[in-house]
């Protein structure tokens, strides 16, 4: 059961979106996140819908995969919509006992729902079209200019990629330890929360001990292969902004600047 957890949800396709530089994808996702909160009329949301649909189409990711990704977020979305609908003051449309729904509340709830919807879809496109390692590379690339301010860009990226690399290994191990403890009569299912939490101790302790051994041995193996931080290091997959990246980044940046100026001006 524990094995079903998948990390990232990267789907390999040979698409235009997949081939974009990870930094481009991270940046436009961030632009999108800001932008989506700066617009508030239906026409513009239609444009956003078109943009999103076009991106999905170009990414060749099956629509079902994206819809599936929305499922876990659904409760959060509903909660936000309800909160906004109930707790916004304005002209009352409908009231019963202590419940009061206002026109403004409905508007806001609707917009919030739409925003979260687009936000999830667009960011999940990022992880669906970018492998975890490429994503890490992208983050490192974006952080690199901050090295001047002592931000350890390379170290952060290295830690992230090692963590990603070891997740399946550690999940496997957890599975094994659980089975071993079950074979000795451990019970993980019954009892209240406190009892259940306590029953995790015999899993966590061996898991931690082995994780430390692993870390120790991995460090030794890395050193043996000449690792010494990012000094004098080259990259297997060099990041490169191609023309398409530049054009897309430019368009998104212009759009965001326009939205911000409009917001301030209004």
């Amino acid at each position: 059961m524990i094995k079903d957890i998948t990390i990232g949800q990267y789907i390999y396709k040979d698409s235009f979106v997949h081939k974009l530089d990870p930094r481009t994808k991270i940046l436009i996702s961030m632009f999108f996140m800001f932008g989506i909160f700066l617009i508030n009329n239906i026409t513009e949301y239609v444009y956003v819908l078109l943009l999103t649909a076009m991106t999905i189409y170009m990414s060749q990711i099956p629509l079902m995969k994206i819809i599936k990704g929305l499922k876990p977020i659904l409760p959060l979305m509903i909660l936000t919509v309800i909160m906004n609908a109930f707790f916004t003051s304005g002209t009352t449309l409908f009231s019963w006992a202590f419940i009061r729904i206002t026109r403004e509340g409905l508007y806001l709830a609707g917009f919030m729902g739409i925003r979260i919807f687009f936000l999830i879809i667009f960011t999940s496109l990022l992880t669906l079209t970018t492998s975890p390692i490429t994503l890490t590379n992208g983050i490192e690339g974006l952080l690199t200019p901050l090295k001047k301010f002592k931000v350890p860009a390379h170290e952060i990226a290295m830690m992230m990629s090692i963590a990603l690399r070891f997740i399946p290994t550690l999940i496997d191990e957890t599975d094994k330890i659980m089975k071993a403890q079950k074979a000795r009569g451990a019970d993980f299912e019954s009892g209240n929360i406190i009892k259940k939490t306590k029953s995790l101790v015999p899993i966590l302790i061996p898991l931690f001990i082995s994780a430390f051994t692993r870390a120790d041995e991995l460090a030794m193996a890395m050193e043996a292969r000449g690792y010494r931080g990012d000094e004098g290091r080259t990259k297997f997959k060099e990041l490169k902004y191609r023309l398409a990246d530049k054009v897309i980044l430019f368009l998104f940046a212009v759009l965001l600047v326009f939205l911000i100026i409009r917001k301030i001006a209004l």
């Binding site: 041995e217 292969r225 004098g232 997959k237």
Partner: peptide, 28 residues
């Protein structure tokens, strides 16, 4: 080393093989 898991640095074989090359500054 002995434990095959604890010396695998990359997410895939090619990335792992690249790791040592990156360390020695081999041309990309």
């Amino acid at each position: 080393f002995q434990n095959p898991d604890n010396q695998f640095v990359g997410g895939t074989i090619e990335e792992d093989m690249a790791f040592g090359l990156e360390n020695i500054g081999f041309p990309s």
